[in-house]
Design a protein around this nucleic acid. Structure first.
Lengths: 111, 111
DNA sequence: CCTCTATATCACTATATACTGATATATAGA
DNA sequence: TCTATATATCAGTATATAGTGATATAGAGG
């Protein structure tokens, strides 16, 4: 990370913010299997249509998803392979952090 | 990303949430140069001590930072190299998304 | 113990946003 | 045009959290 300007920092924060929500991560997880219509996603998550639509909008605005109108439906898909790479990296980090914490807890604060 | 349980999803979201704040990204950017005391970070960001301390707590709780008491000071550092890798990846994504948007804007909605 | 300094935490306010139910918009077909 | 379906958006509420100033805590030194 070089010196980032205020705008760039805010953009990066916005990117992370889009990912900082369980429901949106579930949507990404679902879309990882392939493109899906809003209705299919509503079904898959068991959430309200309004809720899913709004979260999809957030992900789309953040540039994480692309979409395409198909008849009366809108089909969403993950915009870039790098998004998945990112999720994988974070999942790995989370696992490592959990392991580190568990280890420290077991050794009673020696980590 | 395999099927993640509710807890795991929430943990990943929490990890992203910790990163979803400009002030915290600035702290990470500062700490990328090496360990720093709270006072040094207050100076570097030009923020209040209370504010910096709280953000450091959030990053620490998320497992992104480690800390060490040294006299009356507390010194923070980035806990894992992977955290930086993550930031770099996101910075790259943000740049690409911006470029994609710019291109689409220029071509009037053909992207 | 007293004081100085560094840091953490508290009480409070302001703002952002997740959620819901209702409504608006858009497309397909009769 | 009228209807049905799919999706987007609106209005309202509840909750989370960023920010501030004040206070509490902890270590160093007299």
């Amino acid at each position: 990370m070089k010196k980032l300007g205020t705008d760039a920092i805010e953009q990066v924060a916005a990117y992370f913010r889009a990912l900082a929500e369980p429901q949106r991560l579930r949507l990404l997880s679902e879309l990882r299997q392939g493109e899906r219509s809003v209705g299919q996603l509503v079904e898959a998550l068991g959430a309200t249509q309004s809720n899913v639509s709004k979260h999809l909008e957030v992900l789309f605005d953040a540039g994480l998803l692309s979409r395409e109108r198909r008849g009366t439906s809108t089909v969403y898909r993950i915009a870039e392979a790098e998004t998945l790479q990112l999720c994988d990296l974070v999942c790995g980090n989370v696992v490592r952090i959990a392991a580190r914490r568990a280890g420290r807890d077991l050794r009673l604060g020696r980590g």
